[in-house]
Design a protein around this nucleic acid. Structure first.
Length: 310
RNA sequence: CGCGGGGUGGAGCAGUAGUAGCUCGCCUGGCUCAUAACCAGGAGGUCGUGGGUGCAAUUCCCACCCCCGCAA
């Protein structure tokens, strides 16, 4: 049996990890002919062009790379038709794929989505699961259609979320879930192509995260704030404002105690009063400064005590 | 040249034209059943690098290196 001509599409580290781990297994039955990823972006203060993690992986493996500016352009659609893949596997690519492309592969265009669809369709399902304090989330392997994360489900795998998990940790855990799901599901899919329609009435959505979303509202509960700190730990990072400077909160704990001080009041040792309980800041970073643990911070900024964050 | 903050004893910060101080840590002694607590004493810095102007610079000026935030 000939190997199935397959194109991988993806951009960030999450996709890169899944592709990298599954590549050795996929190679047995699938020929990865091309990898499609986002264009190189200028990164950092020097605005140096950096290839996406997925591109770096492709370069390592000498897999031909395509980086469409807009994949919905006719020239790219033609290009894909010409390549004529039998299967597309996509994960966090970053662009909407036009129907003409989805229709090309005879085994379909599959999407690896890090949530239990129809829950959390959209751009930030991993963050959302933490923000909402969900007990579990998972990975869905699905067949793409014209609407975002709307197509039929091929398979799903649930993951119990550990207490106090951070974004990075959850992403990591889900990488393995995704890897296993993909490898387990693909043979059956190729064989019988069974999928089931989503319950569209139960669909929920999560938006693209903006920098502004990281600002802490001290009138939330300590638990809510703690979730935000963990969910946004990689980006955009939960922050508050101290003397007109951005103060990133990198790590914290909660403590059941209410001092009846105004929300946002800094008590001793960077214990902050929230709507209900106390949030203890363990690690933070002031704008222009390096990250430091709260004890170090207090050595240099003792006047933060009794300050009230907005 | 994208915008901005900063480089001072081990850590975090303050400060000044006449070679520096705070908090924490560290060492010694004391107190204590004991302690991360308290008391007393002590050791740590040529104040990022190279120039310039001063009688004199860590403090002013110039160049460079490095760190960090924003933006992407």
């Amino acid at each position: 049996m000939n190997k199935i001509k397959t194109i991988l599409m993806g951009t960030p580290e999450f996709a890169e990890k899944i592709f990298r781990k599954s590549y050795p297994v996929l190679q047995n039955n699938f020929e990865i002919t091309h990898i499609i990823t986002a264009q190189d972006k200028p990164i950092g203060r020097k605005q140096i062009l950096i290839p996406s993690p997925v591109k770096q992986f492709a370069q390592e493996k000498n897999i031909p790379i395509l980086q469409p500016d807009k994949i919905r352009k006719q020239e790219w659609i033609e290009k894909l038709k010409q390549l004529n893949p039998e299967l597309i596997i996509l994960c966090a690519y970053g662009q909407i794929i036009p129907k003409e492309i989805l229709d090309i592969p005879k085994y379909g265009a599959l999407n690896i989505h890090p949530s239990l669809l129809p829950k959390y369709r959209g751009a930030s399902p991993i963050h959302q699961a933490i923000l909402n304090g969900d007990e579990s989330t998972g990975i869905t392997l699905m067949l793409m259609d014209e609407q975002m994360d709307h197509g039929n489900i091929i398979s799903q795998k649930e993951y119990k979320i550990k207490n106090n998990i951070t974004y990075k940790e959850l992403e990591n855990e889900l990488t393995d879930i995704a890897l296993n799901l993909l490898i387990e599901s693909l043979p059956n899919w190729i064989k019988n192509q069974k999928s089931i329609e989503q319950n569209h009435e139960k669909a929920t959505f999560c938006k693209m995260i903006k920098k502004q979303d990281g600002q802490i509202d001290w009138n939330n509960t300590a638990e809510q704030i703690h979730r935000k700190i963990r969910a946004y730990h990689v980006w955009p990072i939960a922050y508050t404002v101290f003397k007109n400077k951005q103060l990133k909160i990198l790590e914290a704990e909660t403590k059941k105690e209410n001092t009846n001080n105004q929300s946002g009041t800094v008590l001793n040792d960077l214990n902050i009063q929230t709507k209900d309980n106390i949030l203890i800041i363990k690690k933070l970073q002031l704008e222009g400064k390096k990250p430091m643990i709260s004890k170090e911070f207090l050595n240099g900024y003792p006047d933060i005590v009794n300050y009230v964050f907005e």
